[in-house]
């Protein structure tokens, strides 16, 4: 696909997203907001999985904690301030990512997969088994956050159109930030780590620090998504930290095509539309989702992005190079 066709497609897509709430049905405006939130969430995980090569199965921890922070911070009878609550939620998610990250980033490969999942589940049990924030039933946010500037209220998150545009703004901002990040020296380092971490170390990069910072950035972005999700539905429960959500978002990243900017967008749209469709067919819709996932794993290793026509100067990330001295394969598979 030529760059021109691509730009036109992007612009048309963007225009559609911009005018959609003016013409679209209320239900779909909300549904699209939900999808856009998931693109932020998936984009944040893509930073880890697609670019740095760290497969996290516990990313919902940061999504959920941000939601819980908003819920606990919101007063029952008044609306929380948008800026303060957003800052608290995202900061809290980043802090949690720093804490968990400093432990799990010490490992790699399959250890990393297991450890991220285990820590996220720990958080799940913390909120599920204790009385903090309503236990297994969760907690309600009775009044959605609002933005107040000197008595003027430009944004009310209870208004679904306001909410849609806020989410659209944040998802575009997230994509632009990730794009900028990837072209920076930091971005070059994380991609280098994905391809050959041992060589990066030999070149003098303290890879632990870079992986940890990347983990924190991804956690903060996931926190942004979690904050928005909590404000959209006004309810937060332990499922928001659970491994089904971690699994789903990982599926979005892989389905869409890892290590590409459009991948998470594609993945979030396709998985959520598919699930929506399946749910209308049968109560056992996860059977169909599972079948699709299995088929993609077997036949579309590069995800749906692999189906798109290739653009000149292939921008998708190459596979991790195998072998090489001291590759992670040797670390991953000791003797029995």
């Amino acid at each position: 696909m030529s760059t021109r066709v691509r730009s036109i497609a992007l612009l048309v897509g963007l225009a559609l997203l911009l005018v959609f709430p003016l013409v679209g049905d209320r239900f779909y405006v909300q549904f699209f907001s939900k999808i856009l939130i998931m693109t932020i969430f998936a984009g944040s995980l893509n930073l880890l999985v697609g670019y740095t090569g760290l497969i996290s199965l516990g990313h919902a921890a940061f999504f959920g904690i941000a939601g819980y922070i908003l819920a606990l911070y919101s007063p029952d009878t008044a609306a929380a301030g948008l800026l303060t609550s957003l800052l608290l939620s995202v900061g809290g998610a980043a802090l949690l990512a720093l804490l968990i990250g400093s432990l799990v980033v010490r490992t790699g490969g399959i250890f990393f997969i297991m450890a991220t999942l285990a820590f996220a589940e720990m958080l799940f049990y913390l909120f599920h088994d204790t009385a903090i924030a309503g236990g297994s039933d969760g907690i309600y946010i009775y009044q959605r956050p609002t933005l107040m500037i000197a008595g003027w209220q430009p944004l009310d998150l209870a208004n679904i159109v306001h909410f849609y545009y806020l989410v659209l703004f944040f998802s575009l901002a997230a994509i632009v930030s990730i794009h900028t990040l990837l072209r920076s020296p930091f971005g070059k380092v994380i991609v280098g780590i994905r391809v050959n971490e041992q060589r990066m170390r030999a070149l003098g990069f303290h890879t632990y620090r870079y992986k940890l910072v990347c983990f924190v950035i991804a956690g903060a972005l996931a926190g942004l998504a979690g904050y928005l999700a909590a404000s959209q539905f006004g309810v937060v429960n332990p499922e928001m930290l659970g491994w089904h959500l971690s699994g789903s978002v990982l599926m979005m990243v892989i389905l869409g095509g890892m290590g590409t900017l459009v991948g998470p967008v594609l993945g979030a749209f396709s998985l959520m539309m598919l699930e929506e469709g399946f749910q209308s067919i049968t109560k056992h819709w996860q059977l169909l989702t599972g079948a699709v996932i299995v088929l993609v794993a077997l036949y579309l290793p590069r995800g749906f992005a692999g189906l798109l026509p290739k653009r000149t100067g292939n921008k998708t990330l190459p596979p991790r190079s195998k072998g090489g001295t001291g590759s992670s394969a040797a670390v991953d598979r000791p003797y029995v």
Partner: peptide, 20 residues
């Protein structure tokens, strides 16, 4: 294959077994 495809496929199997 990569660990990632293994994660993908076996996660799909979880959903399938759970529904079955």
């Amino acid at each position: 294959r990569d660990h990632l495809q293994q994660v993908l496929l076996t996660y799909g199997l979880i959903l399938i077994f759970s529904e079955l």
